[in-house]
Design a protein around this nucleic acid. Structure first.
Lengths: 298, 298
DNA sequence: TCCGGCTGTTTGTCCTGGACAAATACGCCA
DNA sequence: TGGCGTATTTGTCCAGGACAAACAGCCGGA
C-alpha cells in the first residue's frame, strides 16, 4: 500500500505518517524502485491500533514503536472499562452477521424496534449494536462486507421507523432541525439515530445527508430557517478538524440557529453558540429546554 | 482560509494547490505572519469552478488562470450541450428545491411513484430527475445543499417503495442479487434504482451499500451465494478504474456469479463473465433471460 | 489538598523545491 | 479515418526544516 492508501485506511495524514517515521522509527515502510513508501499490511494494522490509542488520549511518543501485543493490551484496558457484557440483542446480531443472513438480520432489527420502542432503540440498543459490531470487526471476527451489511440493514430499519414516526403523533412543529455531517464524515448511522430522537419529540427534521460542505450547511440553515443544526461525528474524524469545522460553521451560520454536535468524537467542548450533546438520550430534554426558552421571551 | 480548509472545501489536495500556484500562478493566496497561505473566499470559489471543469475533462493548464467569466461560460457550454427539454416532473422538482420545500418535495416524489408505478419511476422518471438536478447544479442554478436535499428525499422515497415491493407479490426467489459500488464510488442513487428494478422482478436482493472494497464484494458473493453481482457506476468514476476494478472482481469472485455493471460511466464493454446493462429498463428482460438459462440445464 | 499560572516538551501541520510515472495530447504513417 | 509512437502535462511523492498549539509537569498560594 502506498502512502495515500494508508492515509485513507488509517485516517492518519501523510505528513503525520512521515514525521512519525522520522521521529519514532515507526512505521518503517519498504520502498519501491522509485524510493516511494510501501506499507506492509501488518504495519497498516498497527497504525490503526495506534490511531485508536491516540484518539482516546495516549500520546504518540509513548505508544508509537511498541509491539502490537502491548498496544492491544492498552486498548483492551481502555475498552474493558467501557465494555459491557454483550446484550442478548448484540449476540443475536453478531450471530446473524456471521451466518450472512441478511433477511434474518432485517427481521431481527425490526423486531427489536417494535419490542423496545423507537426511542429506546435509537438511544440505547442501536449505539450498543453499532459498538459491538465495530468491536467485533476490530478484533477480526467480522469481515468488512459483514459490517457493510449491518450498516445497510440498520439504516433501512431506522429510516422506515422514522418515516412512520413522522406520520404518527402530533403534527411536526418547531424546532426545525437540520441534520448533516462534515465533508470528512461519511457515517450516517449517528445522524439517523439523532434524527429518530428529534422526530419522536415532534420536531420538524430535514436531513442533508452526509458529507455536506460547511458553507453549504450554513446556506441551508438560512434557506430552511433552521432553529438547530445537528451535526454528527464518529470517532474516525480527528477532533481538531471537528473543532475547527464547528468554529467555521458558527461563524457562517445565522446567529438564530443553535449548533448541536454529538457523536463518538472525543474532545469536543461547549462554547458560546455550540452545544455538545453527549448522548442520544440527552436530546429529548434538550428539545424541551429549547421550547421553554423559545416560549419565554414571547 | 488556510490550505487545509481549502482542501476540504474544494476537494483539491494540498499538493495540487501548491503545484498549481507554482506552475500557473493561480491560486495566489495571501500569507499570514508566519508565511502560511491564506486563501480569500473569491479564490476558493474560483477553485470550485476549476475543479468542476477539470472533472468534466478540461486540462488544468488550459483553464487555470482564466478569469471567472470565461470559466462560467465554459461550464455553461458543457451543461448546455447535454440539456434536454425538461419534463413536467423535473420542473416541479426544481421548483420545490428552489423554494427549499423539503416536505413538498417528499410528497411530490411519493406521488410520482404512485402515479407511474415503481418500475417506470425507477427506470425513467428517476434518472431523468437526477440528470435534471445535476445539470441545474452545474449551471449554478442549484446550491450543493439543495442537491443533497434532493438525494436524501429521493433515497427515502425509493427505499420506502422497495420495502413495500419486497412484501408484495410472489415471495422472493432467485436470482440472488448482491448490490454494491467500488470504493471510489459514493453515489447510491443508481444502485437504489437498480435494486428497485430487480425487486420488482421478484429477485432476492442484498445490498452492501456504497464503497465496498473489491475483495470484500467477492467475499460477500461467496458468503451469500450470490447469482448476480450488480455494480453501479456514476460518470464521476474514471472509466479506466472501473474497467480495472471489474477485471479484478471477475478474477476474485466465484465463477458461478455473473457480474452485471451499469450506470453513467462511458467506455464499459461486455467481456466473458461481465454483462454491461445500458439502461435500467434492460434489467427486467435480462432477469427473465437469466431464469430461462438457469432452468435449461436442469 | 486543591487549583491556577508558568515553563519546557511534544506533536501536528505547514513550508520549499525537486523528481518522476501515469495520463493525455500530438504528430505521423498506413 | 484510425492506430501507434513520442512529447508534454499533471498529480503525487520525497526530504528536511520550522513553528504554533496542545500538553505535561512543576511550583506557590489559598
Amino acid at each position: 500500500m502506498n502512502i495515500a492508501a494508508v492515509e485513507r485506511d488509517s485516517g492518519l495524514p501523510k505528513d503525520t505518517l512521515r514525521v512519525w517515521e522520522r521521529r519514532y522509527g515507526f512505521p518503517a515502510p519498504l520502498r519501491d524502485q522509485h524510493d516511494e513508501r510501501l506499507y506492509p499490511p501488518e504495519q497498516v494494522a498497527t497504525l490503526r491500533l495506534l490511531r485508536r490509542l491516540v484518539d482516546v488520549g495516549y500520546r504518540p511518543g509513548k505508544v508509537v514503536g511498541l509491539p502490537d501485543a502491548d498496544l492491544t493490551r492498552l486498548l483492551e484496558r481502555v475498552s474493558g472499562s467501557a465494555q459491557q457484557p454483550l446484550g442478548a440483542e448484540a449476540r443475536e446480531v453478531l450471530a446473524l452477521l456471521g451466518a450472512s443472513d441478511a433477511i434474518g438480520l432485517r427481521e431481527a432489527l425490526g423486531a427489536m424496534v417494535l419490542r423496545v420502542g423507537l426511542g429506546d432503540f435509537a438511544a440505547n440498543v442501536g449505539p450498543g449494536l453499532a459498538q459491538a459490531v465495530g468491536a467485533a470487526w476490530s478484533r477480526g471476527e467480522l469481515e468488512i462486507h459483514q459490517e457493510h451489511l449491518f450498516t445497510e440493514q440498520f439504516t433501512n430499519v431506522l429510516r422506515g421507523s422514522i418515516h412512520m414516526a413522522q406520520w404518527a403523533g402530533a403534527p411536526r412543529s418547531r424546532p426545525r432541525v437540520l441534520f448533516g455531517t462534515f465533508p470528512q464524515e461519511p457515517h450516517a448511522l449517528g445522524l439517523l439515530m439523532a434524527e429518530a430522537m428529534f422526530t419522536l419529540e415532534g420536531c420538524l427534521g430535514i436531513s442533508l445527508g452526509v458529507q455536506t460542505p460547511i458553507t453549504e450547511i450554513a446556506a441551508a440553515a438560512r434557506a430552511h430557517q433552521a432553529d438547530i443544526l445537528a451535526l454528527s461525528f464518529s470517532a474516525m474524524i480527528p477532533p481538531s478538524q471537528a473543532t475547527a469545522g464547528l468554529d467555521e460553521l458558527r461563524a457562517l451560520a445565522p446567529a438564530t440557529a443553535e449548533i448541536w454536535a454529538g457523536g463518538a468524537c472525543p474532545g469536543l467542548r461547549d462554547k458560546p453558540g455550540l452545544k455538545i450533546v453527549r448522548g442520544l438520550s440527552e436530546i429529548a430534554p434538550a428539545v424541551r429546554a429549547w421550547r421553554a426558552r423559545a416560549a419565554e421571551p414571547a
